[in-house]
Design a protein around this nucleic acid. Structure first.
Lengths: 189, 189
DNA sequence: CGGCACCTAACAAACGTTCGTTTGTTAGTA
DNA sequence: TACTAACAAACGAACGTTTGTTAGGTGCCG
């Protein structure tokens, strides 16, 4: 029964947006989840769009940080790719709401915000692509690999994880990462 | 200015649902696209939910038919997988609206319809899994491949295509299929 | 003539949002 | 420790609009 902060609101919104979608969520739904009235949310935030942006920017930053960590921690392409995969899954599993909203609801931002988020997403994908390109140049990966396409393929497998993987199931997170890395590597070497 | 049939309505709805989402589409939006009033749609269909179901069932049937065709046309695992990939991309590209709605909006069906569609989707994924399993048993694929997980990985790459591939771009559909098959095969052999 | 596509008009409910008020909490002062 | 002033969180009612849907009427085509 404690009082809520702006952060509490954004976290609650993320959960709703991730499961019911932006347009499938009303301010009153959100208020119900938080134990307050829908109108009370406006004490914390300017509007529904601002809320969506706040959630998605959180998600974007998580992926951004994960990539920066992989880049600063590993130089060798295979190791860096493994770290990228590991970090991506960590974000997906440990910050399910923000990452799912980032991946699935960004299209509902208004145009200028959508453009900004798309730029952040492109930068993230470029880290994968450049890692693969470096691996090709160093000889760690096959020379006929197309960094752009194979980068998309790897990220496709990673992002789809959100749609089927349940951390409490039989497959541990470490095993999932292992399988992903194995499959990706066999496509690259 | 010709008169519309029920099929025209369903096709129009598919396009809107695919781009704006089910909850992001109003009956009046849909009417605007079709050149009639939102209320006039009710001359063709019982309600919005029925419309969503009609679109998604179309999508489901397209994938179903594609899989049946691959199974009846090829016995050998590698060939059958190639046909499955080819058919999947064909559905995604030639029936963009229905397939995208099927992939992204099924969660907004009411429960019993959602269950039915999920069952159809599971059956489709099982064709991929069984194809891989058969390849493992026949020796066409590596013996340590997990059919379930690698099936999910392959389908992840295929489904994600919808999010980035544009048929009018530099990459031809045949080349895309080629790249997908290549990457999938190297993960399996 | 019958049937079907489409219209106009309207409905109740739900939507995002605003506003003035009440409440709980915090900080400063005596 | 008590009193007070200030602030921010939450309420509750109301707003104008949009929502999905219904009813009854009009005109075209077979």
């Amino acid at each position: 029964m404690t009082r809520l902060s702006r952060e509490d609101i954004v976290i609650g919104a993320g959960k709703r947006f991730a499961t019911h979608g932006y347009h499938g969520t009303s301010m009153r739904d959100l208020g119900d989840d938080l134990g307050i009235l829908g109108s009370s949310i406006y004490a914390h935030i300017g509007g529904k769009q601002e809320l969506l942006l706040a959630v998605i920017e959180r998600g974007a930053r998580l992926f951004e940080d994960s990539a920066a960590n992989a880049v600063s921690s590993y130089d060798e392409s295979t190791e860096r790719l493994r770290s990228l995969i590991d970090g991506h899954i960590e974000v997906l599993v440990d910050h399910e709401a923000e990452s799912r909203t980032f991946l699935n609801e960004a299209a509902f931002l208004d145009l200028s915000d959508h453009d900004r988020v798309t730029t952040m997403r492109d930068a993230y994908e470029l880290v994968f692509r450049d890692t693969i390109r470096a691996g090709v140049l160093s000889g760690a990966f096959r020379s006929d690999v197309d960094p752009k396409i194979s980068g998309i393929f790897v990220l496709s497998m990673l992002n789809a994880t959100q749609r089927w993987y349940h951390p409490d199931g039989a497959l541990s997170r470490a095993d999932l990462v292992q399988q992903l890395h194995l499959f990706a590597m066999s496509g690259l070497t």
